[in-house]
Amino acid sequence: MALVGPSGAGKSTLLGLVNGSVPPTAGTVEVLGTDPTALRGRAQRELRARVGTVHQHLELVGQLRVVHNVNAGRLSSWPAWRAAWSLVRPQGVPEVLAALEGVGLADRVFERTERLSGGQRQRVALARLLVQQPELVLADEPASALDPVLAERALALLAGLAADRGGALVASLHDPALALRHCTRVVGLVEGRVVLDAPAAALTVGDLADFYGAPR
């Protein structure tokens, strides 16, 4: 599913509501069959582990090596001692390498993340998601810092990841063509309200272009 809309329309807020980082001020949210605000402690963490989010690579810690930033996707299932030990001796390197291979960064696995370019960091964020293996994938502008070829591949990866686990991909996208190619459903937001909800097959690039102009 693609989320489209001018900036400030509420796309990121909607994604935040779903992954639980923004509490609802009114109404309820249902994620994978449960209300995230009703859960506490262990159960809340288990639900969160099933929802993966990728932001615009701003969630990475620059001082950590790439391998640790990718491994952070597994922190929900790792006990604290293993998380601590992994910072000394990286754990589960084969899975990390496989994930990085998927985004074409396997040769930078032990690089400090702050040495990577914006596009490379965005791919590290994708690799973290691959390691987390969530059922529901939320993506906030996953293609913004990538060139067209990489953007294409990143979205295919995300969609494939969600499909593997029988879940869905919700991505906010700036490129209407990408949205139509990779998503089956398009939802348009303007000033926090849904103004469009249609199957992608029924839309053209021209229909969506309006959403990226001035707000109506």
């Binding site: 980082s21 969160r48 001082q63 996707g73 922190l75 998380a83």
Partner: peptide
């Protein structure tokens, strides 16, 4: 934001501290 992202993917308080706060604050 890094800490918030780790919380959102289900990391516990210790894991979040180790992977988001500690590396950034050490320097």
């Amino acid at each position: 934001r890094p800490r918030a992202a780790l919380t959102a993917l289900g990391a516990g308080p210790v894991g979040g501290w180790l992977y988001a706060v500690l590396p950034a604050a050490t320097g």
